[in-house]
Nucleic acid binder design. Structure first.
Length: 576
DNA sequence: GAAGTCACG
DNA sequence: ACGTACGTGACTTCA
């Protein structure tokens, strides 16, 4: 193959890239043409056939694909590395319009006006009756796989132009595509967990759940399914009549959500028991019992997948399992976090967190001196805000004042309303309104910035991050006030959340490259929006700590300094 | 498969 | 007068 760029697409036995076997690879380097290589079930033979393709995969030839991370991981099972520049049509379309879907089928219809053979036509709907691609006749495999490769090649032509007209080519080439390799490495690396510890934790949770269950039945005077919001609502609000006017969900059911229960907790033991019961059930089913089942039998580690084209703001998301929502806020939740441990006794876990990155970004973008000064002086930003808003010296700020200031600071990032703020605090709606007004007087340029974002969105139809990542806001001029207000909140929030995502992505690329170049044994494992987690070899700790901190703090220069806290420990909780 | 709930940043 | 925080993924219940 003498081409400059080649599209390829792997066909495999399933969806879990690190566990599947290769069935075939389609190649296309000329629109309308393609070739399919079929592999036998014998894995040694497959590896030896693949070896013939090693020079191609490791060459400088540009590799085009749709969701390349998947194909690269599959090939990694056979020790094939994919080198050279990449072009991922899924990610390209994510940058072109992050709010849309990026399935190849949809893209083919939208851009090529063509309806490809769907995978379900070939192997059926997913479920236990779904066939393996192995049993599909080779002619059909070929037809399907080559079509996909051809479509991907054709999409590239469209998207190259659209990336250009959306002014995101640089973001694509310098951030998102390099990030593919970084995420691939992190996913393959995985993280170690202490299964034995989780099993013990599950036993204690079961004991507490059983105890609470009995007490709840006792107080209710009957047995019912506490995990059923419907049954629980009837017991609490019809039988026990705990409140005169119970809040309903949008379908007319009684709401038993935490925000409803927390209002009743101080007056009713049964509510406190339900809250505790719910918490333990959640921890047990979502984490304590689920995580051990996610351990890969070959590596003994947990391998999440990072979704690079899901979150409309530019963030990553994590699934199968989601390692971006591991508990930390409650005591029992923290126990779950303790189960994430280093690779072995020669390593520790290292966690590096950006401190208040979103507030720093809004301070910098708005050029709000009062907030910038606070950050430059290394002040506690919530206390500093409280001091200004409540007009007291910073060392006389009360707990409650700081807490309210903190809530407003976060609210600003989301697009506060007095209603929302009063919901989140003990303040009444009018107190909340007053606090917001004072806040804007304290930080006048913040308000101007927010208004400017909305104006920009109205004029251009989109907003953008520091790295020019766009989010289109089609509802920004809607006549429906509620819809329009939503778009306006997005106009403020998307550049903030998205810029933070841009910055940590840059840092990840820089750190990954330095680690490769300097040949460290330590590995980056996880990203949790403003935090990176590493398996740090003890011998390398003194070298990599300052490298990580430097690369994160200097990934992107703004007029506000970025601050990163680095910690280490024998588990993820300790590392904080 | 939708709805409700709740874990995280 | 109205309904409202931004962004995700996973689990259980129930039609």
């Amino acid at each position: 193959m003498q081409q400059h760029s080649v599209c390829f697409d792997t066909e495999t036995t399933g969806l879990k890239a690190l566990e599947v076997e290769l069935i075939g690879i389609a190649f296309s380097y000329e629109v309308g043409k393609g070739y399919y290589v079929s592999f036998p079930e014998n894995q040694e033979e497959t590896a030896s056939i693949l070896n013939e393709f090693r020079p191609f995969f490791e060459s400088d030839i540009e590799k085009i694909g749709h969701n390349l991370k998947y194909d690269i991981k599959v090939l990694s099972n056979y020790n094939i590395a994919v080198k050279g520049s990449l072009f991922d049509t899924m990610i390209a379309h994510y940058l072109i319009n992050p709010d849309m879907r990026h399935n190849m089928d949809i893209l083919a219809e939208t851009y090529l006006n063509y309806q490809p053979v769907s995978i379900t036509e070939l192997i059926g709907k997913k479920g236990k009756n779904q066939l393996s691609m192995r049993v599909v006749p080779i002619a059909d495999q070929t037809e399907y796989a080559v079509e996909d490769a051809d479509i991907t090649l054709q999409l590239k032509e469209h998207f190259t132009k659209e990336l250009e007209s959306g002014n995101v080519t640089k973001l694509f080439n310098e951030v998102e595509l390099p990030l593919v390799s970084v995420l691939t490495a992190m996913e393959i690396e995985g993280i170690n967990i202490d299964i034995h510890f989780l099993k013990k934790l599950s036993v204690t949770l079961t004991a507490d759940i059983n105890r609470l269950e009995k007490e709840i039945y006792n107080q209710a005077g009957e047995e019912f399914n506490i995990a059923s919001p419907k049954q629980l609502g009837i017991v609490l609000f019809e039988k026990m009549q705990l409140v005169a006017k119970p809040k309903k969900t949008k379908t007319g059911q009684y709401s038993t959500a935490e925000e409803v229960l927390s209002f009743l907790a101080k007056d009713h033991q049964i509510i406190r028991d339900i809250q505790e019961f719910r918490q333990y059930k959640k921890l047990q089913s979502t984490y304590v019992d689920a995580l051990p089942n996610e351990v890969n039998s070959k590596t003994g580690r947990i391998h999440t997948q990072y979704m690079q084209a899901v979150a409309a703001t530019g963030r990553l998301s994590s699934n199968n399992p989601n390692l971006q929502n591991i508990p930390i806020r409650t005591k029992r939740g923290q126990a779950v976090r303790k189960s994430f441990i280093p690779r072995d006794e020669n390593h520790v876990l290292l966690a590096a967190d950006y401190s208040q990155i979103e507030l720093r970004i809004i301070a910098a973008l708005s050029n709000e001196e009062n907030m910038i000064t606070a950050f430059k002086n290394g002040e506690d930003i919530h206390a500093a805000t409280a001091a200004r808003v409540f007009n007291v010296p910073i060392d006389e700020v009360t707990r409650e004042q700081r807490s309210n200031a903190k809530t407003v600071n976060f609210g600003i990032i989301y697009g506060v309303s007095a209603f929302g703020l009063s919901n989140q605090t003990d303040l009444t709606r009018s107190e909340a309104k007053e606090l917001i007004d004072t806040y804007y007087e304290t930080y006048p340029k913040l308000k101007a910035f927010m208004a400017a974002q909305v104006d920009f969105a109205r004029e251009h139809g989109y907003v953008e991050t520091v790295l020019k990542r766009r989010r289109y806001l089609k509802d920004i001029n809607s006549r429906n006030a509620m819809v329009r207000n939503g778009a306006e909140r997005n106009a403020v929030n998307a550049p903030i959340q998205g810029s933070a995502a841009d910055i940590i992505k840059l840092a990840m690329i820089h750190i990954h490259n330095r680690f490769e170049k300097e040949g460290f044994t330590s590995k980056m494992l996880l990203q949790v929006h403003d935090e990176l987690v590493f398996d740090a070899h003890k011998d390398e700790l003194d070298i990599i700590k300052p490298i990580i901190k430097y690369e994160m703090e200097n990934a992107f220069k703004m007029i506000v300094p970025l601050d990163v806290e680095v910690g280490t420990g024998e588990n993820w909780l300790e590392a904080h």
